[in-house]
Write a protein that binds this DNA or RNA. Structure first.
Length: 311
DNA sequence: CGTCCACGTCTAC
DNA sequence: TAGACCTGGACGG
């Protein structure tokens, strides 16, 4: 499951789970989190989720009742609020009973029910940040999923950028150009397309100029921030294949792995077209091939599946 | 127990 | 180019 799609699933999850649920009161932050508080409170609001690249955005929308001006207990009018989350290694949303709040739930939205249930943002390593009143990060590139043509154009019209001096493998982690690509996705993409991971990015991508692949244009203003079909109850459950089964290269026994310049592990298949690793790329990892599981990954997918099944 | 590793980015030398 | 930021699971002794 590609990174972008995974985040898309996270946003689908929120929209599906929260459809029809009325939330109420303040947004609660864990004591231990260093992120900003979310200064939002409202007697009745709903939550929807959308995604763009590596970000997920929740929208808290006050529910208006006929003839009643919507006001918070403090007297200030409720306005819709966007919270943008930068997603990473160990984070996901869950919707549980308030008494069964997951460990490491750092941001909590309570439903107006008794007993209360809560949507929570779970971030085990606390690496993630969120921005109240935030919008999509301005310096990250177009979404690889929902802004495909913009994404493509942004890459191909900037091939002189120094970012493309890197190997294709390393360049693909640059979020200015590949917003949504993560470590396992670069491995899976390069493997499936049989692209040598240590070729210079410009060499690989320069070859794409002549033929333009025609895909339906997804306009940024339409594609990136629509509430998803899940709101209408059509979550693609059959697509919730386990992450592990989906992987063909990343962490797969028999594949090679090296450490890149940023200390990230590159997974790849040693192929006939493979040139020697570019200079500067370091030590081969030993012993790791024995490990079959990508436990973090499968755990996260299990969490997401579990969350859906519980509903 | 300890060590290594993890879907990532930021900051400082 | 290192750390820093964090928790926790797998694995080795």
């Amino acid at each position: 499951m590609p990174k972008g799609q995974e985040l898309h699933l996270a946003s689908l999850f929120v929209s599906l789970i929260c459809a029809g649920v009325v939330f109420s009161g303040p947004v609660e932050k864990s004591e231990v989190s260093k992120n900003s508080k979310v200064p939002f409170t409202c007697d009745a609001y709903c939550i929807t989720g959308t995604s763009r690249g590596k970000e997920v955005r929740l929208t808290l929308t006050p529910i208006k009742e006929e003839g009643e001006p919507q006001a918070s207990p403090g007297g200030k009018a409720c306005q819709p609020v966007h919270i943008v989350f930068r997603f990473g290694m160990s984070d996901f949303f869950r919707f549980t009973a308030g008494s069964e709040m997951p460990k490491h739930a750092h941001l909590r939205f309570y439903a107006n029910e008794t007993p209360r249930r809560a949507l929570s943002f779970v971030d085990v390593r606390r690496f993630r940040s969120w921005e109240p009143n935030g919008d999509w990060q301005t310096d990250s590139g177009p979404c690889i999923m929902f802004e495909y043509q913009s994404f493509r154009a942004n890459v191909l019209s900037n091939l002189s950028d120094r970012a493309f001096d890197e190997t294709i493998s390393e360049a693909m982690l640059n979020q200015n150009f590949f917003n949504g690509i993560g470590n396992y996705l670069r491995a899976e993409i390069l493997y499936r397309l049989k692209i040598a991971p240590f070729m210079k990015a410009r060499t690989v991508l320069g070859g794409l100029f002549p033929k333009k692949r025609e895909l339906p244009e997804v306009k940024p203003e339409q594609g990136q921030c629509q509430p998803h079909q899940a709101v209408r109850g059509t979550i693609p459950r059959n697509q919730m294949i386990t992450f592990q089964a989906w992987l063909q290269c990343y962490y797969v026994p028999g594949m090679k792995s090296l450490r890149d310049h940023n200390g990230r592990t590159i997974w790849f298949q040693q192929g006939v077209k493979e040139e020697p690793p570019a200079k500067g790329i370091k030590k081969e990892k030993g012993g790791v091939q024995k490990r079959v599981k990508s436990h973090d990954e499968s755990k996260k997918m299990r969490e997401q599946e579990k969350g859906l099944k519980e509903q």
